[in-house]
Write a protein that binds this DNA or RNA. Structure first.
Lengths: 339, 339
DNA sequence: GTGCTCAATGCAATCGTTTGCATTACTGGA
DNA sequence: TCCAGTAATGCAAACGATTGCATTGAGCAC
């Protein structure tokens, strides 16, 4: 690895001249620049980003902290984030945190002192349990934005209108003639699941459908999905509704399999609607009718927000960017015939 | 952000003393150490990793270059790699490269000059097209290991015996009484798919089943999966075999859907076996019988190999670590009754 | 009291850049 | 011919840590 010094020696000029020549600084003569560039090429000079960062306190790098890379949601988001980051000249580092607060802390401190310019995170904020890593970043006034999660400390965030989305799901089912709608709930320490639950109840109310706790089946026990067992029990005890709204696509997919195992046909006997529109949801059969979150746009928006923070540290933007959901009609919901 | 200097000033000692005290160096008196630690705590000192790396030329960080994070294979590998890396005291950075040579080059140069200690990659080596980024790393004698891909320049690699795996798939189908076995091929510029194809042919031969090109259906056109169209055409023209061996699970999943759409029941009318054992393969219905690659162990082994390289730069290990596959019996292959 | 050892601490160079300021060299106008 | 003005270049101080070597001073044996 050759350094500026090596190039300078070979070119018979000072280090600063080389530095400026390669940065295409206007104070250096054209022929000198050309000669230096040539020598740098010959010596295969490549800048030491560490040294540069030490001086400039920046790195043109963003980090995206992912709670669980095996959750199908995040890879899609990561791709969107990566593409937009690159479009704006930044590199992206991905870190899988397993939602472990200690690990997040470690990553954040490490990356921050490596001059990562800003952070994106989709961390699952558990109720009550405040996230130390984020509080720390905010206390330093470090650029960061929360993606798919609303966040405390009024961090900028890019989210989806979960309540309205869930309401749309209910609207859609009702429009297809369903009035007996079971809700499979997400894990209850995630705010986004509570919002979807609220939207479900709101939807029922709007259509004057009486709500009862019986209508809600738990989809999670802690971080474990238990839809399959729950659904099996309910069905075996004869309580199978005509329509089921799942708080997320993974829940819906599990349910689809359970229904298949129970020899219930979808959508003829039971209609199922999900929430997310993961890429796999389309290839299941019946393909899943679901509520789409515009991942790609959201990822891009989050990066734009973050870069805006980095480049204008003083200016504050809107704290929350809220995206709209959309019903994606596929095969898992039986359509009303009159329609 | 306070620095060593700040702590030193407050403690009334020199910077070196602070540095040594915090590193628990034996040349520093116990009471001094204690006092310095206390002050460091008060000032919330946290080391500047950049500056440290500039000096030590290391960072206790590994990077894993992933070709396509949306491919279900890689998140699983990433988790294995991450866990093992952490167990050995290293952090892991993930980079999605879309298999773009320029992008890989950029990431490698950036990370390498940020003193990432070693690289893992699962890059899809296209035939002929040599990968510049890897050649570059090798020329620097930089620690790196290839995961799931055999690699040129005799880079250490952790791979699976694809040929034998494919042979096992054929063996299994034959043992279940199938002798008409179609192979759905992977994209032909990936060596691993060629090996699976070779294993398929070897398997046929072993059981004295005549091979013909008719038996091979293309699964890819470039990087695009085209199984669905191909299978549909073949089936509509009346050529539906009793058993199909897909070169990968994603192909098998696509096929399962196509068969479902064509109203062919699996495994009653057609048996399907895949290769990979992705996590989703289990939740499809019928659940997919497939050839398992031990992702988790492979990811761990790759990290161990890499760290061995980092810590003993001189010693050379075995260039290739070859793992064994295993048949995972689920529902998509009809079992022979006599068995 | 002198000399010696050894533990504790400080000095200063170093890593590879960037950058404000100083310096040099060249140009053209008077 | 001389000077001002500007373009081109170099010097040296940062950035924040690590570390070999020098220094200090206390303790101890003689």
């Amino acid at each position: 690895m050759s350094t500026l010094k090596d190039v300078a020696k070979r070119a018979g000029v000072s280090i600063s001249t080389v530095s400026r020549a390669l940065a295409d600084n206007s104070h250096i003569g054209e022929k000198t620049k050309e000669r230096i560039r040539q020598i740098a090429d010959e010596l295969e000079y490549s800048p030491n980003y560490i040294a540069r960062s030490l001086k400039t306190k920046g790195s043109m790098t963003l980090a995206y902290l992912i709670p669980d890379i095996e959750n199908l949601l995040y890879p899609s988001l990561a791709v969107a984030v990566e593409k937009q980051a690159r479009a704006l000249g930044y590199s992206l580092l991905l870190c899988n945190t397993f939602d472990d607060p200690d690990l997040m802390n470690k990553y954040v401190r490490q990356l921050q002192s490596r001059f990562v310019d800003g952070f994106l995170f989709s961390t699952s904020l558990r109720k009550g349990l405040n996230n130390e890593a984020i509080t720390y970043l905010k206390s330093l006034n470090y650029p960061c934005v929360s993606l798919m999660r609303n966040s405390p400390d009024n961090t900028d965030s890019v989210i989806v209108d979960n309540t309205l989305g869930a309401e749309k799901a209910v609207d859609f089912l009702v429009a297809q003639g369903h009035r007996e709608i079971v809700f499979i709930a997400g894990s209850d320490n995630l705010e986004l699941y509570q919002e979807r639950f609220a939207g479900y109840k709101k939807g029922l109310k709007k259509h004057s459908i009486p709500y009862s706790d019986e209508l809600v089946w738990p989809g999670f026990k802690g971080t474990q999905r238990i839809v399959s067992q729950v659904a099996k029990e309910k069905i075996e005890s004869g309580k199978c509704p005509k329509a089921i709204f799942c708080a997320s696509d993974p829940l819906a997919i599990d349910l689809l399999k359970t229904l298949h195992d129970c020899k219930l046909s979808v959508p003829e006997q039971v209609s199922v609607i999900g929430f997310d529109n993961l890429r796999v949801s389309e290839i299941f059969y019946p393909s899943l009718t679901t509520i789409e979150q515009p991942f790609f746009e959201m990822g891009k928006a989050a990066v734009k927000l973050l870069v805006a923070q980095i480049e204008n540290p003083n200016k504050r933007n809107e704290p929350n960017l809220i995206f709209e959901t959309k019903v994606i009609v596929r095969e898992s919901v039986k359509l009303s015939e009159v329609k």
